[in-house]
Amino acid sequence: MPISQIAVGGREEATHPDALKAALAEFLSTLIFVFAGQGSGMAFNKLTNDGSTTPAGLVAASLAHAFGLFVAVSVGANISGGHVNPAVTFGAFIGGNITLLRGILYWIAQLLGSTVACLLLRFATGGLATGTFGLSSGVGVWNAVVLEIVMTFGLVYTVYATAIDPKRGTVGTIAPIAIGFIVGANILAGGAFDGASMNPAVSFGPALVSWDWTNHWIYWVGPLIGGGIAGLIYEFIFISQTHEPVPSSDF
């Protein structure tokens, strides 16, 4: 049972060089991803007079996030596993594939990476506002929570199938592009309703820099529930219950 594999980790893990290097990799990967994703939205708004809410803007956001995440996961995969997302880290923890202390390090690094990316964008664009996540007209908070749960479930399920599963074989080589594609597809599916975050860090940086916390809790509750469910289901049903936890270097 996955719950039996959950581990807190030793205190030395917080200062171990490998863990600190992994946290730095998560910081840089998240910075790269958020800078590309947020930057594309800001650029599209500037070029089209707030056209990011149009169909063309949605497609542009989907492509930018898919490409950006593909690169961010790829450059971090050999060091930290390329989580780039607190929901992915949480799903890996629930499945017993990362310790709690290492996961907390990742969360701190991911949130800092997103915040720094938004600050850099604001400075580089002469003070333009970073786009915060919000609900479209007619979309209730619980509608958005369900959307975030389902979309993040698909994302973390894809991560498990292509990056964590010990039986993944050669499919592991396409993990970054598969992860990028599912995020891009989910943005096309849910972006018009709640922005399709699937990632608390992606929502946190813009909210902090803009100091706009309207309905921000949705983008934590939904992704964490979705990521946790995906971790439990994949680990319990599809991965051998007796396997050793996957080393962080392999994910």
Rank of each mutant, 00 (worst) to 15 (best):
V156I: 12
G205E: 04
F44D: 03
D165C: 09
I237G: 09
T48Y: 02
V71E: 02
A64F: 09
T130F: 10
I94L: 12
G205Q: 03
M42Y: 02
I225S: 01
V139P: 08
G226D: 06
P17H: 01
K167N: 14
T99F: 07
G191S: 05
F44M: 08
T54W: 12
T115E: 00
I164D: 00
I237P: 10
S248A: 15
A207K: 05
A43S: 10
V88Q: 01
Q110K: 05
G131E: 14
S52N: 11
I104G: 02
I108A: 09
G37W: 09
A189S: 12
L188M: 12
V209I: 13
Q5A: 13
M198H: 05
A14I: 15
A178L: 12
V146N: 01
F93G: 04
S203T: 14
D165I: 09
A7I: 11
I182V: 15
W217V: 06
T130R: 04
V71Q: 01
M42Q: 02
S29W: 01
G51S: 08
F35G: 02
I98E: 00
L111W: 10
G226N: 02
V139D: 00
T152C: 03
A19H: 12
A185L: 14
F251A: 11
T158Y: 04
D250W: 14
T53Q: 14
G134F: 11
V8Q: 00
G169L: 11
L24D: 00
T173A: 15
W107D: 03
I94C: 09
A25S: 13
P245K: 05
V246G: 06
N143W: 11
S203C: 08
S248T: 14
P245I: 08
F123E: 12
V246P: 03
Y157Q: 12
G96I: 05
G138V: 11
L155E: 04
L147R: 10
L208M: 11
E148Y: 08
G169C: 06
T54A: 10
G131F: 12
I94K: 04
P176M: 01
L105S: 07
N78P: 10
T99P: 01
L188V: 08
L188N: 06
